[in-house]
Amino acid sequence: MSKLQPQPWITAKKQPLANGKPERRQPTSIPQGGIRWAGLARWLHLYLSVVSFVLVLFFAVTGLTLNHADWFDDATVTTDLKGKVNPRWVAGTDTATVNKLAIVEYLRATHQLKGSVSEFRIDDRECSLSFHGPGYSADAFVKRSDGTYEVTETKMGLVAVLNDLHKGRDTGQGWAWVIDIAAVFMTLVSVTGLALLLVLKKRRVSGLGWMLLGAVVTGLAYWLLVV
Rank of each mutant, 00 (worst) to 15 (best):
residue 55 L to D: 01
residue 197 L to T: 15
residue 62 T to R: 09
residue 58 F to G: 07
residue 198 L to K: 05
residue 225 L to R: 08
residue 13 K to V: 13
residue 194 L to Y: 12
residue 155 K to V: 13
residue 211 M to K: 06
residue 108 R to K: 14
residue 27 P to Y: 09
residue 108 R to W: 09
residue 67 N to S: 11
residue 100 K to E: 15
residue 59 F to T: 00
residue 117 V to I: 09
residue 56 V to W: 13
residue 226 V to M: 07
residue 16 P to A: 03
residue 151 V to I: 14
residue 148 T to Y: 13
residue 75 A to K: 15
residue 134 P to E: 01
residue 175 W to G: 04
residue 41 A to M: 01
residue 194 L to G: 15
residue 6 P to N: 02
residue 22 P to N: 03
residue 167 K to L: 08
residue 202 K to P: 11
residue 194 L to V: 15
residue 142 V to H: 04
residue 186 M to S: 06
residue 3 K to E: 05
residue 192 T to P: 08
residue 118 S to A: 10
residue 135 G to N: 03
residue 111 H to Y: 12
residue 52 S to Q: 03
residue 22 P to S: 04
residue 129 L to Q: 10
residue 133 G to F: 00
residue 126 E to I: 04
residue 44 L to E: 00
residue 103 I to C: 06
residue 126 E to A: 10
residue 22 P to Y: 05
residue 122 I to W: 03
residue 196 L to S: 09
residue 67 N to Q: 12
residue 197 L to P: 14
residue 24 R to W: 02
residue 104 V to I: 15
residue 20 G to Y: 02
residue 197 L to R: 10
residue 208 L to C: 09
residue 53 F to N: 03
residue 208 L to P: 01
residue 34 G to N: 12
residue 78 T to L: 05
residue 186 M to V: 00
residue 38 A to L: 07
residue 204 R to P: 09
residue 195 A to C: 12
residue 157 G to H: 06
residue 52 S to I: 05
residue 131 F to R: 05
residue 116 S to H: 12
residue 152 T to G: 05
residue 95 T to N: 13
residue 112 Q to K: 15
residue 181 I to C: 02
residue 54 V to H: 09
residue 51 V to L: 03
residue 189 V to W: 07
residue 37 W to V: 10
residue 49 S to L: 07
residue 213 L to H: 06
residue 187 T to G: 13
residue 162 L to V: 00
residue 136 Y to Q: 13
residue 172 G to L: 00
residue 20 G to C: 06
residue 84 K to T: 15
residue 172 G to A: 04
residue 66 L to M: 12
residue 91 A to F: 00
residue 4 L to K: 04
residue 64 L to K: 10
residue 66 L to Q: 13
residue 204 R to D: 11
residue 119 E to R: 14
residue 201 K to I: 00
residue 153 E to T: 06
residue 70 D to K: 12
residue 18 A to W: 00
residue 75 A to S: 14
residue 128 S to V: 09
residue 179 I to K: 02
residue 147 G to Q: 09
residue 193 G to C: 13
residue 140 A to R: 02
residue 199 V to I: 07
residue 56 V to Q: 06
residue 157 G to I: 04
residue 206 S to E: 08
residue 89 W to V: 12
residue 106 Y to E: 13
residue 198 L to D: 10
residue 98 V to N: 04
residue 132 H to I: 01
residue 155 K to S: 11
residue 55 L to W: 03
residue 194 L to W: 07
residue 190 S to E: 05
residue 196 L to W: 06
residue 114 K to C: 11
residue 45 H to R: 06
residue 120 F to C: 09
residue 214 G to T: 08
residue 117 V to Y: 05
residue 91 A to Q: 01
residue 104 V to D: 11
residue 73 D to R: 10
residue 19 N to V: 03
residue 209 G to A: 08
